[in-house]
């Protein structure tokens, strides 16, 4: 397989783009741009899965690329757009920690995940092994985003971005999970999103806002 280095380079490039997008999401204040960034992440994910599929001739990966395309590039952003239009939430996002500080924490998380992933990626025989650290970093950054946002919609986008990172980890470490499992995961994500949509309306009906700081009444006293 003489063409391997080229594929590996493309994958590395896409992985770098994924990480960049994760940081962009962390810094983004506007909900609409956040959804677009999430969509961009979906495109990168889909492209990298397709490239891995082409490089390794793992045909089931084409299917997972297709699922990613449908679910994460079209369906989920569409649902999110519809939701925020119906709920009329376009205002800017407030963060709990200011953005430069969040970025610094994010940087530390990236270093941490690279260190954690190093021994494992050495064991991997896949052409994508160097990207495992990036996948882990993307998961961590999405997690950070969930912690630092106070509105419900960005938290959910953080949750979906975390799933993106996990999916990327699965392709880069193992060339994807078995097909049944991947279908199951996609179904769970989709159903979860629909339930959350229902849920948003319930929250808004109750509190007239989607600020989850209203949801801090249940505490131990």
């Amino acid at each position: 397989m003489s063409h391997l280095p080229l594929y590996a380079q493309i994958i590395n490039l896409l992985a770098a783009a994924l990480l960049l997008l994760s940081f962009a999401m962390l810094a983004q204040r506007r909900i609409l741009s956040l959804i677009n960034l999430f969509m961009a992440q979906g495109i990168v994910l889909c492209a990298s899965t397709a490239v891995v599929a082409a490089a390794t001739e793992q045909h089931h990966l084409y299917w997972s690329a297709l699922i990613t395309l449908v679910l994460k590039v079209f369906l989920l952003p569409w649902i999110l757009h519809r939701l925020i239009r119906r709920l009329n939430v376009k205002w800017d996002i407030e963060t709990l920690i200011n953005i430069p500080a969040t970025m610094m924490i994010g940087l530390m998380l990236v270093i941490f995940s690279f260190n954690l992933a190093l021994p494992i990626s050495e064991l991997a025989g896949t052409i994508t092994r160097s990207t495992l650290g990036i996948a882990m970093a993307a998961v961590m950054l999405a997690f950070l985003m969930m912690i630092t946002r106070s509105k419900a919609v960005p938290q959910v986008i953080g949750f979906l971005a975390m799933e993106n990172g996990l999916f990327f980890a699965a392709t880069s470490a193992t060339y994807g999970m078995p097909m049944v499992v991947e279908l199951g995961i996609a179904l769970d994500v989709l159903v979860g999103m629909i339930i959350l949509g229902v849920f948003f309306f319930q929250i808004r009906e109750q509190f007239d806002s989607l600020d989850i700081r209203h949801l801090e009444k249940l505490k131990e006293d």
């Binding site: 996990l166 980890a169 193992t174 999970m177 929250i203 009906e205 109750q206 509190f207 949801l215 009444k217």
Partner: peptide, 29 residues
């Protein structure tokens, strides 16, 4: 659909969702 039950369900969803995402990573490994 009371305020408290919505809060409980939201917490349940997010915490268990994050938790179960860790389990997915474990499964991948």
């Amino acid at each position: 659909r009371t305020a408290a039950s919505l809060e409980a369900a939201w917490k349940y969803f997010i915490l268990c969702g994050v938790g179960i995402a860790q389990a997915l990573f474990g499964t991948i490994l």
